Simulated assay, not measured.
Amino acid sequence: MVQPILVVDHLKQYFKINRNFTVKAVDDISFEIYPGETYGLVGESGSGKSTTGRSIIRLYKPTSGTIIFNGKDISNKMSKESIKELRNKMQMIFQDPMASLNPRKKVIDIIGEGLDIHKNYQSIEERNEKIYEMLELVGLSREFASRYPHQFSGGQRQRIGIARALIMNPDLIIADEAISALDVSIQAQVVNLMKRIQKETGVSILFIAHDLSMVKYISDRIGVLHLGHLVEAGTSEEIFANPLHPYTKSLLSAIPQPNPKIEKKRKSYSYDYNSSGIDYNKGTKHFVSDTHYVLATDEEFEQWKLAF
């Protein structure tokens, strides 16, 4: 049996606003990611996707729950050695490539920052050669190393962000809305680049996005997040062929079709949690197959199965 590289178990991430109000951004979610796998985390804005990613990489301290990475618990206070290993073996690609790149630094220093911090080279020549190789891996010329971020397009800046993450040779990359700020044609280029790099390096990817069609293309398994709850999860084929939760159905129905004849007949379904009568806190995992489950009460599960 292959052991998962990441196990998230009953993760909660709350933010206390004042004495009377607390935002439950992530509310008791569990999933795992296996080596070489891409796990897609989808949902509307404010559903808790980015917060989940930031909690996993420990930009936030989890309110409760367990995060196991490479067999080690990283959810509580960590030693210096554990922090160093986490920073080496888990990297993040941020949503806005311009905001995440230092405008005062050249590309060679942006990409090599992780190498400099962790001293992962013997000489300056070795450092620079690693950076040049990484630039070429993401489809950029080594001549670009002496330029600044503002001299690049959005797609090129995102490639620089990918190179910065990959140069540390991580086991897991968290791609937080890494393509949402890009044009559609550039999105396809970046996603194809990530798939190619994954095939070459075997890195695992947590792909956070709200574009379901792109998530289907890149992901092996998908988790649907709503209001901090993982309402449905399964393989890409299972989620798209047999969606059970009303929220998943509403997301899938909103995907535009390239065929105008089909698009003309497409019906989109609306889902309102407040008027649906569904209470996520009362639901439990109901398995449709070994990999496909939905968060529901017994009555809701039977009703949704009959309605499909």
Rank of each mutant, 00 (worst) to 15 (best):
K72T: 04
T22G: 05
G71E: 00
K119M: 01
M78C: 06
E44V: 11
G40I: 06
V138A: 03
E126Q: 15
Q122S: 15
L115A: 06
S75H: 09
S79E: 02
A145N: 00
V26Y: 10
V26M: 11
A99P: 12
E125M: 03
V26G: 12
K130R: 13
E129F: 01
G114D: 02
S47C: 15
N102Q: 09
K24L: 07
L135R: 02
L135E: 00
D28G: 09
E129Y: 06
I74W: 03
G53A: 09
I83C: 04
D96V: 06
S82E: 15
K72L: 00
S146V: 13
E136Q: 15
R142E: 00
L140Q: 02
S75V: 03
Q91L: 11
L59F: 13
I67N: 06
R104C: 10
I33E: 06
P103A: 07
T22D: 06
R58V: 12
D109N: 09
I111T: 05
G71F: 02
I83S: 05
I33H: 12
D109M: 01
L101A: 04
F31W: 11
A99W: 09
I83M: 13
I56Y: 12
I110E: 00
M90R: 07
K84Q: 10
H118P: 07
E81K: 15
F31D: 06
E133G: 06
T63R: 12
N120W: 00
R104P: 10
K77T: 14
G71C: 04
L115M: 05
I131F: 03
M98L: 14
Y39W: 08
G48L: 09
K72M: 00
E133H: 15
N128G: 03
E81S: 14
D109E: 10
V138I: 13
G40C: 07
S123W: 05
K24D: 07
S50R: 06
E125L: 04
I117Y: 04
N88D: 00
D116L: 04
E85K: 15
L135Q: 01
Q122T: 11
G112R: 01
I33M: 14
G48M: 07
P62I: 09
K24A: 10
Y34T: 03
Q95C: 03
G65D: 03
D116C: 01
K130C: 01
T51A: 08
D28A: 08
T52A: 09
L86T: 10
I67W: 08
F144S: 11
P149Q: 07
M134W: 02
K24Q: 13
R54A: 04
M92N: 08
S30P: 15
A99T: 14
V138K: 07
E44P: 07
S123A: 05
L115P: 13
R54F: 14
E126T: 14
G53F: 07
Y148P: 02
G43K: 03
M134K: 12
M98V: 08
V42G: 09
K72I: 00
S50T: 11
E113M: 05
V42A: 13
T22K: 05
A145L: 01
F31E: 08
K89P: 01
N76V: 01
M98A: 11
N88H: 12
S123C: 07
S123N: 12
L140N: 02
F21W: 01
